[in-house]
Design a protein around this nucleic acid. Structure first.
Lengths: 196, 196
DNA sequence: CCTACCGATCGGTAGG
DNA sequence: CCTACCGATCGGTAGG
């Protein structure tokens, strides 16, 4: 009779979610079976249902956790930083750090959200749209205060978020660049461009 | 007895692949069943197998088509453009155009390649790495010729490709910006930055 | 192009 | 935490 291992301060449910994030990232949500998840944890599939309600609940937990972490960070940055550029820089750095430190979960939230069931799918998309909207306002403020060139705020937000998200290709790469250098390079590129 | 509709110059197999690209984009490869694909085309599932060999063949066709189109374009740009910056600009514009004009296929190649079977998975990943490598060399040349600030070529390639790929969020959006304006904004952002 | 059907696998439940 | 098992659905084949 095997048992699900879980460290201190981590419930078995959280352990299951963690493993699920890894598998969803690697194989995709639909291609990951509950049997495979169970075997990875060293138990039989039905045993999982003592801790969780359904497969769908797993991706739901992952997506809403990631979303709330980004939102909470944005709350803090909006209040603490001074210039629009310094706020943008702080946001880019947070995205990079989150991407590298919580890779599986962020990846799954980015790629597999479409498998959320209503009404959670709508909630997720609304939160994401609201997050983008707040970034747009931040850029608009920068333009007004003459810190930022007169650009289309939506295109700029899209460009920045997408570039940062692209670190999923970086992850696992041979690193002749430290995380700090990576942050600096990317912040620099997105804010200053590359033309000499 | 229904029939698969296909226009002139388009085989039924191509029609099937097109619809498959739409469904794979919308629901993901694993969550798309051959029955659903068949019904979308107005036939029963077994009828598809008169034109294709397997479900796997569909995603294979999509991914390899997209990959070869990008490679062919890069061949042309490497030979025709002059400065490193003008080459980069042409590449960014091509990516944007491809993304907007062949959205389903490009999206699927970007998101669902992991469901390719070996040895095609390896082939795909090798081609992608080779494409990135060529872009890195292009940037390195730009640095040498003093056109481009001394940046890490890989981070720059990652930033540019990821930003452009993020147009998948743009697609279908209400467009108070034309495609040309979008191209110009994004090229400008990625090459010149946003700081005034 | 269809009907009929295959073995495999899915998410999940019953009951202990 | 397990065994035993459910109905549903999967990709694909046989045969016409």
């Amino acid at each position: 009779m095997a048992k699900i291992q879980s460290g201190k301060n981590v419930t078995k449910k959280e352990t299951i979610i963690q493993k699920a994030a890894y598998l969803f990232k690697t194989k995709g949500y639909s291609a990951t079976s509950m049997r495979e998840l169970a075997n990875t944890l060293g138990v039989e599939a039905p045993s999982l249902y003592n801790y969780i309600g359904s497969k769908s609940e797993l991706i739901q937990a992952i997506c809403s956790k990631v979303m709330s972490e980004f939102t909470i960070n944005l709350d803090a940055i909006e209040n603490n930083s001074e210039t629009a550029i310094s706020k943008l820089e702080a946001i880019v750095r947070f995205h990079i750090q989150k991407m590298l430190n919580n890779f599986d979960e962020v990846f799954v939230a980015n790629h597999e959200w479409k498998h959320l069931k209503e009404p959670l799918l709508s909630t997720f998309l609304n939160q994401r749209r609201s997050y983008e909207k707040r970034l747009m306002i931040l850029i608009e403020n920068g333009v007004e205060k003459n810190e930022v060139r007169p650009i289309n705020p939506y295109v700029a937000v899209l460009t920045i978020l997408s570039a940062v998200r692209g670190l999923e290709f970086w992850y696992g790469h041979k690193k002749n660049v430290t995380q700090l250098e990576l942050e600096n390079e990317m912040v620099n590129h997105l804010l200053n461009g590359i033309i000499k």
